[in-house]
Design a protein around this nucleic acid. Structure first.
Length: 428
RNA sequence: GUGGAUGUAGCUCAGUGGUAGAGCCCCGGAUUGUGGCUCCGGUGGUCGAGGGUUCGAUCCCCUUCAUCCACCCCA
């Protein structure tokens, strides 16, 4: 019998980590609110065909990474491997993009059956932002600026690079695809096994290969950016101008094609070198054809996904979490002796009524002053409240400062909340 | 899915073919009502799991599971 343990690649978020996640999530939500974006939540489980139709049959995600199984009714269902498909389904189902624009975000778990490694897990979390019914490059610029701000306000500006490309319209892409296949076929002897297979299924992805033996040959391949249609070129130029004007630096990466079939025109990634080989923190692009492909009307759309595990990992690596998030307690209330223990619980409740912002932890489990104060210290609290036999008899309470050179105070219990309000005023 | 490394106390790690140790953490004491520093003592382990070799395996062999790293792919 094996030991009790969680599933491979699926991690528990332990208390020590959760405050970091809350900090990241709170930062995201606050910024998204400032941009006027609305939250949408869709189910973790969807009909399998939704993902097959939207992401593309020939992609790695659909070919080998989906958690797919039959439910009790024999329907094939799949744990979402990304957010876009589910959000699009919901937008179509509820006519959210009917004669109106939508700027949406969602956050939660996604699942991919892959071999885990640093920054790559089978259950992971994303922030996903999706925008509907805006076709112009101005919204592309807004979306990228939003993603830049999310990273910047966490302190990551210097650690990430924006990579940018345009895939053009499906027609331009198809035309380019033919040129590329022609070129690659001429150099078929250099292609590795994977690329041979992709030659017919997804030739654009061959460009992304890291195989050094193919680097020289790929460098001579025709470039997608040289074969854009006029409108896509104008769209891309406008976007680049806006980003430049706003001081967002970027690197054009003509090999950036991304792994999901549905993209068109603008695609982008935020990457870092600080996380080893899983360097993409955020990636997205325009998917103008997808709503129609899933049975809706023609609705232009653009979005991105941002990996929260990778972001937390990056912030940890660079030591960018503020110190203030580590403590969850402001005040630790001790109680020594039977009378004090009786008084402590109502006193704690009273303080929580009077000072709702104050984070107060009550000592339970008895023990000496020494051990209780030690626990107060370990809790991270700024002050310990001392309630012993003498204080209980006198209606008093001691205020001991744990983090500063400052004399211990003795106040009446009646004055306590007033005194704490003053002491914690600046902090709140 | 492929390749490599690693699994010993809650954590970080030593270790030996004769059934285990340190540091940190935790608890208690030195200080009969006061944390952090110091000193003393204590709790805590089916040595990842299963099988094999052996008189005897934590150590050697096989299998398996997990973690990490890389490939691949992406968040």
């Amino acid at each position: 019998m094996s030991k009790l343990q969680g599933l491979r690649g699926m991690n528990d978020l332990l208390p020590e980590q959760s405050s970091k996640w809350q900090y990241v999530e709170a930062t995201f939500k606050q910024i998204l609110a400032r941009y006027g974006y609305n939250e949408i939540r869709t189910p973790v489980l969807e009909d399998t065909s939704l993902f097959r139709r939207s992401i593309g049959e020939a992609t790695d995600v659909v070919e080998k990474e989906m958690y797919t199984f039959d439910d009790r009714n024999g329907e094939s269902v799949t744990l979402r491997p990304e957010f876009t498909a589910g959000v699009v389904r919901s937008v179509i189902e509820h006519s959210l993009a009917h004669n109106q624009t939508q700027r949406l975000w969602t956050m939660g778990q996604v699942f991919r059956y892959e071999r885990p490694q640093k920054g790559r897990y089978r259950q992971f979390h994303q922030l996903s932002v999706e925008i509907f019914n805006l076709a112009g490059p101005d919204i592309d610029a807004e979306l990228i600026l939003l993603s830049a701000r999310l990273l910047r306000e966490l302190g990551l500006s210097d650690q990430v690079t924006l990579e940018l490309n345009s895939l053009g319209t499906p027609e331009a892409r198809a035309h380019y695809r033919n040129l590329l296949v022609e070129y690659l076929t001429q150099h078929q002897d250099v292609l590795d096994e994977d690329s041979q297979r992709r030659l017919t299924t997804n030739p654009l992805r061959i460009l992304d290969s890291k195989n050094p033996d193919m680097a020289e040959m790929l460098a001579g391949a025709p470039r997608l950016l040289d074969h854009l249609d006029d409108e896509s070129r104008a769209h891309f130029d406008y976007l680049k101008d806006r980003l430049t004007a706003l001081g967002i630096s970027f690197r054009i990466n003509t090999r950036l094609v991304r792994g999901l079939d549905y993209y068109s025109r603008t695609v982008f990634e935020w990457t870092t070198t600080a996380l080893g080989s899983q360097g993409t923190v955020c990636g997205g692009g325009r998917y103008d054809g997808m709503v129609e492909q899933l049975g809706g009307k023609h609705v232009p759309a653009i979005g991105f996904g941002l990996g929260i595990e990778r972001l937390v990992l990056l912030l940890e690596t660079l030591d960018l979490f503020p110190d203030t998030i580590s403590s969850t307690v402001d005040v630790y209330l001790t109680a020594v002796g039977p009378q004090a223990e009786q008084l402590a619980l109502p006193l704690a409740e009273q303080l929580r009524d009077q000072l709702p912002e104050l984070r107060l932890q009550l000592h339970c489990g008895g023990g000496s002053f020494k051990s209780q104060i030690k626990k107060a210290d370990r809790s991270g609290a700024r002050v310990a409240l001392l309630l012993g036999e003498d204080e209980s008899a006198n209606g008093a309470i001691g205020i001991k400062f744990l983090r500063e050179e400052r004399d211990q105070e003795q106040v009446s219990q009646a004055q306590l909340s007033e005194r704490l309000a003053v002491l914690f005023e600046a902090a709140q």
